[in-house]
Design a protein around this nucleic acid. Structure first.
Lengths: 225, 225
DNA sequence: GTATTATTGCGTAATAATTACGCATATGAT
DNA sequence: ATCATATGCGTAATTATTACGCAATAATAC
């Protein structure tokens, strides 16, 4: 039997949402190959850590990000995808609230930066493909799983949620029907707090009730936009 | 940097459909660990083959199966999942038409057998978990992608398709509404052939038109049951 | 050969879900 | 006070889903 010499890495596409824009966290590579090019954060898996642990460790090391939601995306294994040799990479996608921490570059990264998804730089390896798949997955997923809340502040006005969905889905949504639908799902708690931004009627704040969501899911009631 | 010593394998959950039953192809392991226990077919990835090539090679070697549809399922990487050491496995799920070839056991398998999914034996490693995830994926997927046809003969009476869906989804479907819906999707060609099985009015044969499906998909028209 | 049974195939009505849209309400700005 | 702006509630029109009746065409029983 031929000895297997395949290396295993993890990569993470991390999405954030601020000021009506979806952004992705990228690092500038400090070393070859693709030195000084932008890439998705990631790195090799250690012998005794799980894949999720590897992702969270690498993200912490390279960017300082604390992940809020993490999900396995796909495993990329084309023999030619890394010039150093055979590297199979398990890609994840994650959601964070950018305003809850400060990003910084270290270890393999010389820079860390948020890029809005319509202004992306050229990427290393097959990271362009990974990123495109992530965006599609995110767009698909928010219509049948309540993961959008992971991108918003814990307490948010309804208009923030609506803005997020119009941005992510890339189309207009009727505000009144959207409100009816979401509130009808019964996964939001209406708080006794109001917030006013600029002119206009002040908005009530809402909060996602995860416990209630799991309860409904167990009863077979599905979340769908 | 610590040298990485992780092995990479692929596993494939292969589904077949015959006589109104969904079956999974399992092998009996010839060697330790889990010698003489049932398992999902699979094995280690070679240095210079793609992951899909590895799956198809292992299936051919161990079982003689020629796969009809193959899709990546999930990557399982818990450090403790294999008693031999760290083995990360990329699981696939596949669909075949069992009546188009003969299965046989060889290399790592002492036996190969179809098991209906409600009469499964005890499985090796974390293969139980992999299989459960596969079944869920299959059930979910047939409602929004026309992959069910990969399990049927190329030419089939409508009742076969209906039977497949009731079996997979585990619930009754109104024959007349189902027919309207599927035919309305415009992805089936009605042939000028009829088939009669036992008594009753002979049924027209249909054939899935993949070209037409891709065309409709490109136009944004979605398949959904 | 005729009646019976089984299965296919086409239609229409009742119900539910989605979409479109009018307008009152509450605040900041002038 | 008046206007501009954004929130929040309702109802009607449209579309999709579900329920179900029944004719058509064969094998089978007698």
């Amino acid at each position: 039997m031929i000895k297997q010499s395949i290396k295993l890495s993890v990569d993470a596409v991390v999405f954030g949402y601020e000021e009506g824009k979806i952004s992705v966290l990228l690092i500038k590579r400090k070393y070859e190959p693709f030195k000084d090019k932008w890439a998705i954060p990631g790195g090799f898996v250690l012998n005794d850590e799980s894949l999720e642990e590897a992702v969270e460790r690498e993200l912490q090391e390279e960017t300082g990000v604390k992940i809020n939601y993490l999900e396995q995306l796909y495993t990329f294994g084309e023999p030619s995808r890394d010039p150093r040799g055979r590297v199979v990479s398990i890609a994840y996608f994650g959601l964070v609230r950018p305003n809850t921490f400060k990003i910084f570059a270290s270890t393999d990264a010389s820079e860390v930066q948020w890029f809005t998804i319509d202004e992306l730089p050229e990427l290393s390896f097959d990271h362009q493909e990974i990123l495109e798949m992530s965006i599609k997955r995110l767009q698909g997923k928010i219509t049948y799983e309540p993961i959008g809340f992971e991108l918003l502040d814990k307490k948010f006005p309804f208009s923030d949620l609506e803005k997020l969905y119009t941005t992510l889905l890339g189309r207009e949504i009727d505000r009144r029907n959207f409100r009816k639908k979401i509130l009808g799902l019964n996964v939001l708690d209406e708080l006794d707090e109001k917030v006013s931004k600029g002119s206009g009627r002040p908005a009530n704040l809402f909060q996602f009730n995860q416990k209630r969501y799991f309860q409904l899911k167990k009863e077979g009631i599905i979340f769908e936009i």
